[in-house]
């Protein structure tokens, strides 16, 4: 989703000394989704950096729910999100435009029929 680097690509070199700040390998980027209250879907609220999923979840709690904004959090590695492209927008979404019979308002029913 963005220019994040992946953390796990240079596995197996744990004993290397920590490099100086420039050129340091970033923690990967995670997208954060918060369920505001029970009954609502999780909604994307932003992103953060964390070395792994466990810490990502905890960082998300501290960064995005300091004011009780949520009852549940998802974190997803940004690299694992596959997104549709704006250039595909026409072929993805426009074909649904003329299928108006999918909407209840398409149908004429007598006004005195209840529970429709």
């Amino acid at each position: 989703m963005s220019g994040a680097t992946t953390a796990s690509t240079s596995a197996g070199a744990p004993s290397e000394p920590a490099p100086a700040a420039p050129g340091e390998r970033s923690w990967p980027l995670w997208e954060v989704f918060v369920r505001g209250k029970r009954g609502l879907s999780h909604v994307h609220v932003g992103s953060l950096h964390a070395p792994d999923a466990e810490l990502a979840l905890r960082n998300a709690r501290d960064v995005y729910t300091r004011r009780q904004e949520g009852v549940s959090i998802w974190v997803v590695k940004a690299d694992d999100v596959t997104a549709s492209s704006p250039s595909e927008k026409d072929s993805f979404f426009d074909p649904a435009g003329d299928k108006i019979y999918r909407h209840p308002t398409f149908y004429d029913v007598p006004e005195d029929v209840e529970y429709l």
Partner: peptide
């Protein structure tokens, strides 16, 4: 060590 950790320790 990281800004996220400033927030965690603050909490």
């Amino acid at each position: 060590p990281q800004i996220e950790e400033d927030m965690a320790l603050g909490n």
